[in-house]
Simulated scan of single mutants.
Amino acid sequence: MKYVKWTFYTLIVLTVFGFLHYVLPQHDIVRITDTETRRIDFGDNSIFWASADAGTGTAQPTRDVKFIETIRQNGRPMVYRNEDTGWIWPPYFKFDSYNLQTEASDLRSTSAAPRWVVVTHYGWRNEFFTIFPNAVGVRLADGPDERIIPWANIVILTLLAVAGIMLRRMWLQFRERTLDPMFGTAGEAWTDAGDRAGDARRGARTSWGRFKAWLRSLGG
């Protein structure tokens, strides 16, 4: 039972970590090589794509998606999709994918004369499932070694930690003030009922013994 409990807790921690790692903003320093728009047919991986751009049709099995193609500092490619998030989820409230595409196109460069940029995005890149992170911002970097402090993540995680501590304290107080007395009263009532039942059985045996003695005295 101990292993089952720890397995359950481990799964919860991994699920929360994966969720936060997917939705929280990340920053990459890359060199933009090209931007393009492709027609995408959505399949089993449709949950990893955002909704259609604001003002366009939503119930479309296929639509145009903007992409930003880049090269990392280690020479490996990284491709981002550029989609609006709208008002729903994740709460980036991104409606400027066309403007972002224009900015990214203007920052293109070659390996001979690289221009390093910071791409802010959320999501994962998975080649097997054809999943792309969604770019939400792009700006010119100070250089390939620019140090980026994720202030947004620090603030969000701090607020989540404070909320978690407050919820735990509220739960402990609720259990101490409501559940424990309730279950304690129920346990005492159950114990009292058992004691009363025992007394009744003993009283019944005593009364029956007296009744049998009275019958024997009549017989003489």
Rank of each mutant, 00 (worst) to 15 (best):
residue 125 R to G: 15
residue 94 K to V: 07
residue 81 R to N: 07
residue 29 I to W: 02
residue 115 R to L: 09
residue 98 Y to H: 13
residue 32 I to T: 04
residue 165 I to R: 08
residue 71 I to L: 07
residue 178 T to Q: 08
residue 111 S to W: 05
residue 173 Q to H: 14
residue 218 L to Y: 05
residue 151 W to N: 07
residue 48 F to R: 05
residue 184 G to A: 07
residue 94 K to W: 02
residue 141 A to T: 00
residue 66 K to Q: 13
residue 28 D to H: 10
residue 151 W to L: 12
residue 156 I to H: 07
residue 16 V to D: 04
residue 137 G to C: 06
residue 103 E to D: 12
residue 174 F to D: 11
residue 101 Q to H: 10
residue 194 G to P: 03
residue 181 P to W: 02
residue 23 V to T: 08
residue 135 A to H: 05
residue 88 I to Y: 02
residue 180 D to P: 00
residue 205 R to I: 05
residue 216 R to Y: 05
residue 120 T to G: 05
residue 133 P to S: 10
residue 109 S to N: 03
residue 178 T to N: 08
residue 100 L to M: 13
residue 189 A to Y: 06
residue 65 V to A: 02
residue 162 V to A: 14
residue 182 M to T: 12
residue 208 W to P: 01
residue 25 P to A: 07
residue 128 F to I: 11
residue 111 S to K: 09
residue 28 D to R: 09
residue 143 G to N: 04
residue 85 T to F: 01
residue 57 G to V: 00
residue 94 K to T: 08
residue 122 Y to V: 03
residue 159 L to T: 14
residue 43 G to P: 06
residue 129 F to M: 14
residue 186 A to T: 10
residue 57 G to E: 05
residue 33 T to C: 02
residue 196 R to F: 14
residue 174 F to G: 14
residue 107 L to A: 07
residue 85 T to I: 02
residue 53 D to V: 00
residue 135 A to S: 11
residue 43 G to D: 11
residue 170 M to D: 12
residue 31 R to D: 01
residue 208 W to A: 14
residue 25 P to I: 04
residue 51 S to N: 03
residue 63 R to C: 05
residue 26 Q to G: 09
residue 22 Y to G: 04
residue 43 G to S: 12
residue 68 I to T: 04
residue 109 S to L: 03
residue 208 W to K: 08
